[in-house]
Design a protein around this nucleic acid. Structure first.
Length: 423
RNA sequence: GGAGGAAUACCCAAGUCUGGCUGAAGGGAUCGGUCUUGAAAACCGACAGGGGUGUAACAGCCCGCGGGGGUUCAAAUCCCUCUUCCUCCUCCA
């Protein structure tokens, strides 16, 4: 959510910045009129309420003195009726106003490249050497099947498409990655671990920006009006919803493992094979709450924390600065980490690190009391550190051997009971 | 699932039956001061926050006693409803 007062003041300038996203901005044009009507009614109704408060005191005084107050009471009956009508009207406008405000995307930061789509994302840096195979290398779903560690067919039977069973050392590898990443971020990067609920209520989904606009992307538990989380970002960011943090507690850094659930509406036909695009996948997520002046340094830091995982695992990747057209609804700036997938001869997203500035904090009411005792919104950030399924994908494909086995990256071996090769 | 009870400011806690100088007593914690070599104790003082509106900035005004609605000239107080927590029974990993 954007700052209302700022939007009122710098409307044209903000509109121009938002236009770079290439999204539909028709909601934005309703802002001015709704804002004005809202404030006009507030002023009118508050004046009447002030009058009623004042007169109530007089009535109470008269009653105590056993004097007649019927004339004042009669007048206030009318005033109260008007107040009720105006309040109803105001509620309606507030509801419309909220819908508009919740539907306006975040303002891109000035360091975000202007562009239309993923073609215009800018490569910031690249790490690692792309492996060259002296034999015919296989896609990960074949490796997984041949090693009997991934079972897509049975998952399709038990549930449906875009689900998987991990089996044996496959399951162990997945678990090893989760534990390795959680341990590393808590021990070396200063994060506190949270293990969150996988189901959240509607307000939480609004708080982080999945709702109201993108309800079709989520799994809804209808009878409860609860949602399966699409990422641990949702419960972890909302952990501090409607709170005022102490400046001494900032930055707050959490790392959370969770399963993630996505309907993948609109991506039918894409990545239909393998682990890349699942309805359910595992992810270790990094979330930070920081002072506004620190948030861009924090974004670099957090991105580095995610990169460190890829470096330790020895997986080649590149960092992309996402352009205005590919930023997503909530981010002011976003880096995607893309890992090399040999079977596709392409880099594929494995982590997304964003600075939301105060966009989520305003929606979720996450504030802090600064050194002078003033209440301000925090800035929130998050990033995958990393998506586990896609990491398994990258390991299987990049570490495959001619004999069909897969070498386990060294840092994972302590988490794999010392196993060096999956065969 | 059944039967009760509770929710008041940072914490504890009055007030609710009997609506109106309660825009919320009292205590603790916290902060400032006196005393002290320093501290503790004691004593004195401060302590409703948050949101909205408004302003150049103040001021002022509006809303806040778990959330939402209702009754009334007027609601912490009466009514309805939802949520959360607690106790007992039932069930259960």
């Amino acid at each position: 959510m954007l700052d209302r007062k700022q939007l009122r003041k710098d409307f044209a300038e903000i509109k121009a910045k938002l236009a770079k996203r290439g999204e539909d901005l028709s909601d934005l044009d309703k802002f001015g009129e709704l804002d004005e009507r809202r404030r006009a009614i507030i002023q009118e109704v508050e004046q009447l309420k002030a009058e009623r408060n004042e007169t109530s005191k007089q009535i109470s005084q008269l009653k105590r003195e056993k004097k007649d107050a019927s004339e004042l009471i009669e007048r206030m009956q009318q005033v109260s009726k008007t107040i009720k009508e105006l309040d109803n009207e105001l509620n309606e406008i507030e509801a419309q106003f909220d819908q508009v405000m919740l539907g306006i995307p975040n303002i891109p930061h000035e360091s975000v490249p202007v562009g239309e789509d993923e073609e215009d994302n800018v490569e910031v840096r690249k790490w690692g050497d792309i492996p060259s195979f002296s034999f015919e290398h296989k896609p990960h779903w074949e490796i997984g099947k041949d090693l009997d560690i991934l079972d897509f067919e049975r998952a399709a039977k038990v549930t449906g498409s875009r689900f998987v069973f991990y089996k044996g050392l496959g399951a162990k590898l997945e678990r090893a990655l989760i534990n390795f990443m959680l341990d590393y971020h808590t021990e070396h990067h200063g994060y506190e671990e949270l293990l969150p609920p996988y189901i959240v209520n509607r307000n939480s989904m609004i708080g982080t920006g999945q709702l109201p606009k993108f309800e079709e992307d989520a799994f809804l538990i209808e009878d409860w009006d609860y949602f399966l989380i699409p990422t641990a970002e949702v419960p972890v960011t909302n952990f501090h919803r409607d709170e005022i943090l102490s400046v001494d507690d900032l930055p707050k850094k959490y790392v959370a493992y969770s399963a993630c659930f996505r309907s993948e509406a609109g991506s039918a036909g894409r990545d239909t094979r393998g682990l890349i695009r699942m309805h359910q996948f595992n992810k270790v997520e990094l979330v930070q709450f920081v002072k506004p002046e620190d948030s861009y340094d924090a974004l670099e830091e957090l991105t580095g924390h995610a990169e460190k995982m890829l470096q330790l695992l020895g997986l080649p990747y590149r960092v992309m600065n996402m352009c205005t057209g590919d930023l997503g609804f909530t981010a002011a700036k976003k880096y995607d980490l893309e890992v090399w997938i040999p079977s596709q001869q392409k880099y594929r997203e494995i982590s997304s690190c964003s600075n939301f500035e105060a966009f989520q904090a305003r929606r979720a009411g996450i504030r802090y009391r600064d050194e002078d005792g003033k209440v301000k919104y925090v800035h929130t950030l998050n990033g995958s550190g990393l998506a586990i399924g896609r990491t398994v994908t990258a390991i299987l494909e990049n570490y495959q051997q001619e004999d069909g086995s897969v070498v386990v990256p060294e840092v994972l071996r302590p988490y794999m009971g010392g196993i060096e090769v999956i065969k």
